[in-house]
């Protein structure tokens, strides 16, 4: 039982990070229908910038409490990422708003390559270590362990998501966003400056990405210029799982994805143990005896397969994700 609980806790932490990144994908998609492939790189830039700021502050021998140092890193990272996303939208996506659907997808891929290699030039190829500012103290929760850093990550992610929901549901900007998502032309006629709304979606997404970047780095203690790719992919998958374009869906998708993939794959390993089967071949039978009856077809090496398999199943039964609305076809 404590193993199960532990897996849930692990999943929850990682899931909150996925969810934050997924929100960036989903907001942009919801409004202009673009898969912003470069979003993962924004997370990476956020992590790298905050790392630079934090190490610089530590190096300058300024006697500040660690919380302030982290906060400083966070603020700079958020600002840099917001500027970056704004610029990216303006240069690479805005001119293509009327172009064929796949054109901005290719520029997004191009931007992703550019950002990665810029980061490589600036921060080098090596894995960078993040100083342990918050000593992870494990707390015992019903036999499972959860560090205070994990709690902080989950809490902060929850807070940010609540904040975003507030912005989208309760403010004028949020209303404009929702209107633009419904119908950009009509929204424009109603006096909404669509460009501002789209920029806002990018910028807010980038801010969340920067926070996620810092979280990932503090949590794992390392950063690398290539880290954005995999994270972005996972978050994108999460967004689709929840129903891309839907905020609650992104959060649900993020947490669900991280909870099902890893532990799920673990249990699949036990379930797909083939040694109990009658009429195995001789070779298999031998291997079973050699491994004390522990021969499973699928182990944790199939973790990603399992995650994608769940995704495909969900999409077969709910073609627009768990919480996605049934939208009209896009050309």
């Amino acid at each position: 039982m404590d193993t199960f609980l532990q897996q849930i806790i692990n999943g929850l932490t990682l899931g909150s990070v996925y969810a934050l990144v997924a929100l960036g994908y989903t907001m942009v998609y919801g409004i202009i229908g673009l898969i912003n492939f470069a979003h993962g790189e924004v997370v990476m830039i956020g992590a790298m910038v905050s790392l630079s700021v934090i190490t610089a502050l530590l190096g300058a021998h300024v006697q500040l409490p660690s919380v302030l140092i982290i906060l400083a890193g966070l603020i700079v990272a958020v600002l840099v990422c917001m500027t970056l996303a704004y610029g990216m939208e303006k240069i690479a996506y805005r001119p293509l708003r009327k172009a064929p659907r796949l054109a901005p997808l290719i520029t997004a891929i191009g931007m992703s390559i550019i950002l990665q290699n810029l980061a490589l030039m600036i921060w080098g190829r090596n894995y960078l270590t993040f100083p342990t500012l918050i000593e992870p103290t494990p707390h015992n929760i019903l036999g499972a362990s959860m560090t205070d850093l994990q709690m902080l990550i989950v809490a902060l992610a929850g807070l940010l998501m609540a904040g975003l929901v507030f912005i989208v549901q309760r403010t004028r900007l949020g209303m404009a966003m929702r209107a633009t998502a419904q119908n950009p032309q009509v929204a424009g006629l109603m006096g909404i400056d669509i460009n501002v709304v789209i920029s806002a979606a990018f910028v807010i997404g980038a801010a969340l990405a920067a926070v996620a970047g810092l979280m990932v780095m503090t949590y794992y203690g390392i950063a690398h210029y290539y880290m954005g790719f995999l994270l972005g992919l996972k978050a994108f998958t999460a967004a689709v799982l929840g129903g891309i374009g839907n905020l609650a869906g992104a959060m649900l998708g993020g947490i669900l994805l991280s909870i099902i993939e890893a532990p799920g794959a673990g249990y699949i390993g036990d379930v797909s143990n083939i040694c109990g089967f009658p009429c195995l071949g001789d070779t298999l039978q031998e291997k079973c005896t050699a491994s004390d009856g522990q021969l499973s077809l699928f182990g944790s090496n199939y973790q990603d397969v399992f995650a994608f398999f769940v995704l495909i199943l969900v999409l077969i039964f709910r073609p627009s994700g768990l919480l996605g609305e049934r939208v009209a076809d896009r050309a």
């Binding site: 293509l96 172009a99 054109a103 901005p104 191009g110 550019i114 030039m121």
Partner: peptide
């Protein structure tokens, strides 16, 4: 880097 820039530039000029 140039490869990435080329991808973006080509798409911008020939959508």
């Amino acid at each position: 880097l140039v490869f990435g820039i080329a991808l973006v530039a080509i798409m911008l000029y020939r959508p």
